[in-house]
């Protein structure tokens, strides 16, 4: 392996690792706040990339319909719960937000493709369609189970992932797609060719991680999320509703997933089931971070990216095996360093 290949692999690893870091951090966020091991995190990556691809191809993405259906279900559950207790004004607002907004977005999605307003309009619409799926998903699937054990929530998360992947196949078909690059420029640094897209990916990831730091340290909502993560009951007692924290965490996770999808779709062909493996690699980072530490997760995810790059060069057929076997020594180390008797749930 000469230095050119080395540099190339490092670049490749850092770009992938940056995406894994984003997803890993989102997984830690969701787990600490809601105790859900968010397996469908990767599905948002695929939804983001494929929604964008559909818009570019001039088609109405299935996610627009999905959002409407989910909105109807969520509104139905909410109205049923509030029946006879909340004033009509509140009920009307629920209908307007849960069903009205998705209807509006669907109308835009039906209209937009024929009128090509360009890449940025497509990106905005992709965000608008995919991000709300997160909080609505929380309300439908997880809020009724807020007091269930981690294990039950885990199994539910797997169920959601199966559903989202299957729906991805229904919406987008079995073919893979790539989207247009944000900018086609590339730079030459010595023998290395760095594309603007990879700079975009790394820069966005770094910015987002920094933004999350500011969010948790400086904003009230961020602090409320941290409080919920430390002690849900305590947070509830001081007036932070568990459901708000949960919806916010899921919204952030959906945003991070969607953004990751938009970032990698120009450089990687996205299939309906691509997200699963991508998400799991973020999860490996999160597991190494103990599903609790953001910085350790980010660094570990970066290492996973590098390991992937090098193993795909050295033993490409076995790269998945190598990456997923990495967690075994990590779990062993955790098991040996902190053996304890478990008594919760």
């Amino acid at each position: 392996m000469d230095s050119t290949i080395l540099m190339f692999l490092v670049q490749d690893g850092v770009v992938n690792g940056a995406v894994y870091a984003l997803l890993g951090v989102a997984l830690v966020l969701v787990f600490t706040v809601t105790r859900v091991v968010f397996i469908p995190q990767g599905a948002f990556v695929a939804y983001g990339g494929l929604t964008m691809a559909a818009l570019e191809a001039g088609r109405t993405p299935g996610t627009a319909w999905l959002l409407l259906v989910m909105g109807v279900v969520a509104a139905g559950m909410e109205l049923l719960r509030r029946w006879g207790t909340s004033p009509p004004r509140v009920m009307a607002r629920i209908l307007a937000v849960d069903i009205g907004v998705p209807c509006g977005l669907l109308a835009v999605s039906l209209w937009l493709p024929g009128h090509g307003l360009g890449q940025w309009a497509n990106i905005l619409l992709t965000f608008a369609l995919v991000i709300p799926i997160g909080p609505v998903l929380y309300r439908i699937a997880f809020q009724p189970l807020a007091d269930a054990s981690v294990l039950v929530l885990f199994i539910v998360a797997v169920g959601i992932d199966l559903t989202m992947t299957g729906l991805g196949l229904v919406f987008f078909g079995p073919e893979g797609y790539r989207t247009e690059v944000f900018s086609a420029v590339s730079f030459s640094v010595g023998p290395l060719n760095i594309s603007a897209q990879s700079i975009w990916i790394v820069a966005m990831a770094a910015m987002l991680l920094g933004g999350l730091f500011v969010f948790f340290e400086r904003t009230l909502l961020g602090k409320a999320l941290r409080a919920s993560a430390v002690n849900r009951r305590g947070a509830r007692l001081v007036g932070i509703p568990t459901s708000l924290s949960g919806r916010t965490a899921f919204g952030l996770a959906a945003f991070i997933g969607c953004l990751s999808g938009l970032l990698i779709a120009p450089v990687t062909t996205i299939y309906f089931d691509t997200g699963f493996m991508v998400g799991l690699k973020g999860l490996i980072g999160a597991i190494i971070g103990g599903l609790i530490s953001y910085p350790v997760t980010a660094v570990a995810a970066l290492v996973v990216g590098l390991l992937e790059a090098f193993s795909s060069f050295e033993a490409s057929a076995f790269k998945e095996v190598i990456i997923f076997t990495v967690i075994i020594p990590v779990l062993l180390w955790r098991s040996l360093t902190r053996p304890h008797i478990e008594d919760e749930e």
Partner: peptide, 9 residues
């Protein structure tokens, strides 16, 4: 798998 997933939840 869509149906299975929904049933599970």
């Amino acid at each position: 798998i869509v149906v299975f997933g929904l049933c599970l939840v």
